[in-house]
Design a protein around this nucleic acid. Structure first.
Lengths: 210, 210
DNA sequence: TAGATTGTTAATCGATTAACAATC
DNA sequence: TAGATTGTTAATCGATTAACAATC
C-alpha cells in the first residue's frame, strides 16, 4: 500500500495536524471543518482538504471531519501504531535532555540505552537508562532490535557513529550533529541542524532592520 | 537595501552553503565551481548559481567562486557581522545544553543570562552564566539589549514567556516548546519542533517497509 | 586564443489555491 | 429539502532546472 508520490511538503505538515487535533481532542471538540481548522493552523482550507485526501476521504460532506477519527488516522499514517526501540549516542547535555523527554516515550519511541566514549559518563543512569561504552554499540543494537539512533555527539564523532550504524540493522538516524552524514545504504536520516536554524533567525533580524 | 522577494526556501539553504564553505576554507580549498559544489552539497549547479545570484554576482566566469570571499559574503547576508545578545528561558536539560554550545557563542550569539521559575535552579551558574528568577526577565532583557530569546520551557510555559516578551524590546524567539506561539507584534519566530521532526522519521520508517 | 564557468533568461515541473459538482 | 462542506478537477503561482550568451 505504498502511498504513491506523496510529497515531502505534505508529510512535514502531518505532525502539525496531529498536534492540533490532539489539542482539540483534549478540549472535547468533536468535529472540525477544513475552514475552521484553517483558521487555527494557518494553512488554507483548500490545502488541508488536499493534504488529507492524499490518504483517503476522512471527511463527510456537509459535516466536516470527526476530530477523534482524524487524529487516529493521522497517527496511523505517521506510524504511531507501534513502538520503536531507540538508543542515544552521546550522553552530553543534549543527549541527556532527549533521554528525559517523556513525550517521545509516550508516542512509542522507547529508549533502550545510551552510549558514549567518555569514561566519566559510562555507567551513569539517565532517567533509568544506562550509559554504555560505545564498544558495545553494534552488538547491543542488533540484539535489542533498535531501529532508530539519535546522534548527539560532536560534529566530528557523528560520522564515525554513522559508519558503525551501517554495519547494523538500524534503519533510521535522527542527527543533531552539525554535519551531513555520508551513508551508502538506504538509512533514513532526519537532521536537526540547530546552527542552520539559528542563522535564519539572524538573517531575518538583519532584514527586519533594513 | 531590502532584498526583494528572496524566497524562504533560498534563505534556508544559505546556512548549508555557509557550513560547506567553512569546511573548504579549513581544508585550504581556494576556489570552487558551482559544478563541484553541487557534487558536495547535493543541490544542482543551476540552483546554486540562482541562489547566489539573488544577492549579487559573487563568481567569475571561467573561474568559479573564491571560497573565502563567498564564505564571507554569505556570512554577511546571514547577519554574522555583529553580535546578538541572547537569553535562555528554561534552565532544564535542553536549556543547559544550549547554554553550553560554544559554536553559538563563536558565531556571535552571546548568552547574557538564563531564566527559570524553579527555585532549585535559580542561582546556579551554567557555563558561567547565571540562572535568574523569571520575575527579573522583562527588566533584564530591556536593560541588556537582548534581541533573541531561546524558549526551552515546557509546552505550557512557552506562551506565558511569549506574552512577556511582547512587552519588551526583544525582536526574535527561537522556540523549542512543542506549541505554536500566538504573537501580535512582528516578532520573528523560528520553531524547533522536535516531535514533529521525529514523527516524520516514523512515517518514513513505516513507508520503507510497505 | 580556447576552454571553462558564470549570470541570466526561458522552459519545466510541482505545489498551492480556486472553483464547483457531489453529497451528507 | 436546504445548507454546509467535502472531494476533486482545473487554474495559478512559484520554485527548480535547462540552456546558452557573455566573459574571464
Amino acid at each position: 500500500m505504498k502511498d504513491k508520490n506523496i510529497s515531502v511538503a505534505v508529510i512535514r505538515r502531518l505532525p502539525k495536524y496531529h498536534r492540533y487535533l490532539k489539542e482539540m481532542l483534549d478540549n472535547d471538540i468533536k468535529r472540525i471543518s477544513s475552514k475552521e481548522l484553517s483558521k487555527m493552523i494557518g494553512f488554507t482550507a483548500s490545502q488541508i482538504r488536499q493534504d488529507l485526501n492524499n490518504f483517503g476521504g476522512f471527511g463527510q460532506q456537509g459535516y466536516g471531519y470527526n476530530v477523534e477519527d482524524l487524529y487516529n488516522e493521522i497517527g496511523k499514517i505517521l506510524g504511531l501504531t507501534r513502538q520503536y526501540n531507540v538508543v542515544i549516542v552521546g550522553a552530553g547535555n543534549l543527549g541527556q535532555a532527549l533521554a528525559n523527554y517523556s513525550s517521545f516515550d509516550r508516542l512509542g519511541f522507547k529508549l533502550q540505552a545510551m552510549f558514549d566514549v567518555n569514561p566519566k559518563v559510562i555507567g551513569l543512569k539517565i532517567n533509568n537508562v544506562e550509559v554504555m561504552d560505545m564498544d558495545k554499540f553494534e552488538q547491543f543494537v542488533d540484539e535489542n532490535n533498535v531501529e532508530i539512533v539519535y546522534i548527539c555527539t560532536s560534529r566530528d564523532g557523528a560520522q564515525e557513529v554513522a559508519d558503525k550504524i551501517q554495519k547494523t540493522k538500524v534503519r533510521a538516524i535522527w542527527n543533531f550533529a552539525p554535519v551531513d552524514l555520508k551513508l551508502k545504504s538506504d538509512i533514513i536520516v532526519e537532521n536537526i541542524h540547530l546552527i542552520d536554524n539559528l542563522l535564519t533567525v539572524s538573517y531575518f533580524l538583519k532584514e527586519n532592520l533594513e
